[in-house]
């Protein structure tokens, strides 16, 4: 890997890391399940970016694209299921607050 390539990788890696920081911060700090879900989405965005960057830098774009597409499909299914769970949670507890769920710690 040449110097220039390595620099490009590092630049992309910094943005990947920034998106990860945003996502994890959001998950840790917020009390609202929807916001946690937004944090998770940001994490998935970061990873999708990283996969495409990996393909772009190494010349394996076909592989990276097909993997990214699969990841996107899985992401959507997870988000839809999460949305279903959150709506059910709201029906039960009448709130989206995480603190309400901390009823059965062991």
């Amino acid at each position: 890997m040449g110097i220039e390539m390595s620099q490009m990788f590092w630049t992309f890696f910094i943005f990947f890391a920034l998106l990860l920081v945003e996502g994890f911060y959001c998950i840790i700090v917020t009390y609202n399940f929807l916001r946690v879900l937004i944090g998770l989405e940001l994490l998935m965005k970061a990873v999708t970016l990283f996969i495409i960057v990996a393909g772009y830098l190494s010349g394996n774009l076909a592989l990276a694209q097909s993997i990214a597409i699969t990841v996107i499909v899985i992401e959507v299914v997870v988000v839809v299921v999460a949305a279903g769970i959150i709506i059910g949670f709201f029906r039960e507890y009448d709130s989206l607050n995480i603190k309400n769920a901390r009823s059965m710690k062991g």
Binding site: T48, I52, V53, L61, A64, Q65, I69
Partner: peptide, 13 residues
């Protein structure tokens, strides 16, 4: 980055 197919998926989905 020349990844149009994944881009379309990302946009629509």
């Amino acid at each position: 980055m020349n990844a149009p197919l994944a881009a379309v998926f990302e946009l629509s989905v």
